[in-house]
Design a protein around this nucleic acid. Structure first.
Lengths: 210, 210
DNA sequence: GGGGTAAAGTTAGCAACTCTTACTTCCCGG
DNA sequence: CCGGGAAGTAAGAGTTGCTAACTTTACCCC
């Protein structure tokens, strides 16, 4: 907050002895969750990896659940930007742009299944966190805007909202079923892009009702 | 108690001291998972509820994960029968029958979110269990048969498989987003039935491609 | 009935984990 | 240079997963 060595002070405020343990904990947890599954994570092990005592993390996080929330919050940000850049690679208003958003979603789930599961499947206490809920809404807005552009309707339109939600359902379900290995071998032969494009066309091609 | 007829002997084989601890453990775990979330379950607490020592469950289950697998297996059976009876309430081949299957799926998720999450979201070691995988396939077959009847094609048809999978994705995603409280208030105003019927029409109404 | 056997339960205990408390170390502003 | 506070440590309470060694119980066969 003091302005003398502006940028450095801000960094030093959180760095200190160790060098921003908060960020390093989140990184360590991400790694653990990815390699050992969302359950196979412990504060103790993450602290060990960060090279600090097992009590140190509690100076930065209230409890275990808050660490998870930190990881999820950071993941949500990355997911949203991935979706936005995905949409930007196709003409605004095209079905392809919608499918690209879904592809970004599924790619995230594929490359970081642990964190993805953590973000959605688990309810270790972050199910009603207002901060994360807000981030979730912002992420959903990306889908809404793309659907609106594609349908030529304002984002507030009820039909747009419904379609966007249906698209989200589809991508979400597909992501989970894929990383949970629940798909039969027959399903796995078709690639994500075909699936997404087909779904987007099916859902957005519907007549406006109600 | 000592009757020595065959039927009683079979029961006594599993009953014994306590009265089928295996089943009581599964019931206790179901209850715990439902009230405290999928994470907030411990073998110790479940044993406490069943009125036995914390080591007793290990006479029936290899480890914690096997207990979970037991719960999931039992849940899968109930889910499948619910889906089958759902389909049976509408004329075979109707879109409504397909939607009813989805409704059974979502209703299960709504009434038993903990067990549902346990069955799908978590990967505590049951992700590759062949027994559960087989049960999963049988459950999916219900969707496939309904979709086939609706499309007037054999269940082995590629298009049927794809449509069934898409329907599953939708129901699965909708279930998770609902129980995870990820839906915006706008979405929650539409009921499950309308959603499902719309989705089924959109997906099954697609032209046969490939 | 009386013993052998195996299932089902017990207590005791280890290692690991979460989180708290009390103490130490280090940086920074006045 | 010194006091305050942030960031760390060590030690410990309490819970958990699971194992080992033991006891109790019901059944089978003679």
């Amino acid at each position: 907050m003091t302005e003398s060595p502006a940028a450095l002070t801000v960094r030093a405020r959180t760095a200190y002895h160790h060098g921003d343990l908060r960020a390093q904990m989140i990184a360590a947890v991400r790694d653990l969750v990815e390699t050992h599954g969302p359950e196979g994570f412990s504060v103790a092990e993450a602290a060990r990896r960060a090279g600090v005592s097992s009590a140190a993390p509690y100076k930065h996080f209230k409890d275990r659940a808050e660490i998870l929330r930190g990881v999820v919050g950071e993941a949500m940000d990355r997911l949203r930007t991935a979706m936005e850049t995905g949409a930007a690679t196709y003409p605004a208003g095209s079905v392809e742009a919608v499918a690209a958003v879904g592809l970004a979603y599924i790619s995230f789930a594929r490359t970081e299944p642990g964190v993805f599961r953590l973000s959605f499947g688990l309810t270790e206490g972050h199910e009603n966190d207002p901060d994360l809920q807000a981030k979730g809404e912002r992420t959903f807005d990306v889908v809404v805007r793309c659907a609106a552009a594609c349908l030529g309707l304002p984002p507030e339109d009820r039909h747009v909202q419904t379609c966007a939600y249906m698209l989200w359902c589809f991508a979400h379900g597909h992501s989970f079923l894929t990383i949970d290995n629940k798909r039969s071998t027959a399903d796995s032969r078709i690639d994500d892009w075909t699936y997404l494009l087909t779904a987007a066309r099916a859902i957005l091609g519907q007549p406006v009702r109600g």
